[in-house]
Amino acid sequence: MSASTLDRFLASELVHNYRRNLPAVIGSLIVLGFAFTVTFGPGLVAQDPYDIAQLELMDSFKPPAWLEGGDPAYWLGTDGQGRDVLASIVYGTRISLFIGLTAMLASCLLGTTLGIVAGFHGGWLDAVIMRIADIQLSFPSVLTALFLMSAFGTGIEKVLIALTSVGWVVYARTVRGSTLREKQREYIQAARVSGLPNWKIILRHILPNVLTPIIVVATIQVGTFVLIEASLSFLGVGVPITKPSLGLLIKNGFDVLFSGLWWISVFPGLVIMLLVFGINLLGDFLRDELNPRLK
């Protein structure tokens, strides 16, 4: 980005509004904090909770450091395998966020492609794609994902497939709608008549116009996916037990919560909330700004 475009961007209305919008600033700080944690966190915590050889069974179920019986080596305590809760959270957040982001990108790619194909091509292809979308929408996504996972079995790549298969619909619908609208425009009719290839029309004229709603949907979807993944893992049909995400950490803690060992499940839950809250703050701001109609 050249200096002048940067200046122009900084002077834009978006940036101006952003600076005046406290929730948006808080949201981005939270998201930045998480970006930092997942990038550098593993280097900062003492233990790699996935390396089973590093775990010390004898250190299991230690309470947080500030409580009686706590061990300063484990700030937030340990779980039943002697895993440091803080380290588990750092690694778990990486997995949760990785799943959220990757599944969002995959859904976005698939949904946008199908939406453009449906809108641009029309006819039977449009009918088939949109029927599938309709059927899918008649089910809550958690239920569909739960069912898919129960058939697949646990695994990160399987969670990604399950989330993508419920996530694409919203893009497909949005993009198809915009595509249909754009297709009617005179300049596109003109471009088609002049023999401009379809992919060029799509790339130059249609994609830029559907970009803003996609950004809004995508931001919020990351948060939704993090929550759905947590629910699946909580039910035992999400990520494998050796690579626990935040949701699986909560599940592991659930079994012993009633015996008073609250720290194993409470901290990961707080982290999920903070993460999704930050994403939602940003998403709200983007929606209000990029989609003034919804304001």
Binding site: I52, A53, L55, L57, G80, Q81, T154, P240, I241, T242
Partner: peptide, 22 residues
């Protein structure tokens, strides 16, 4: 599941990498 993880830890000490399929 906890036993399986503990087994993986124990066998890693004689060079056996135990992947878990639970």
């Amino acid at each position: 599941a906890a036993i399986a993880q503990a087994l993986a830890g124990m066998l890693s000490r004689i060079g056996i990498t135990l992947n878990l399929n639970l």
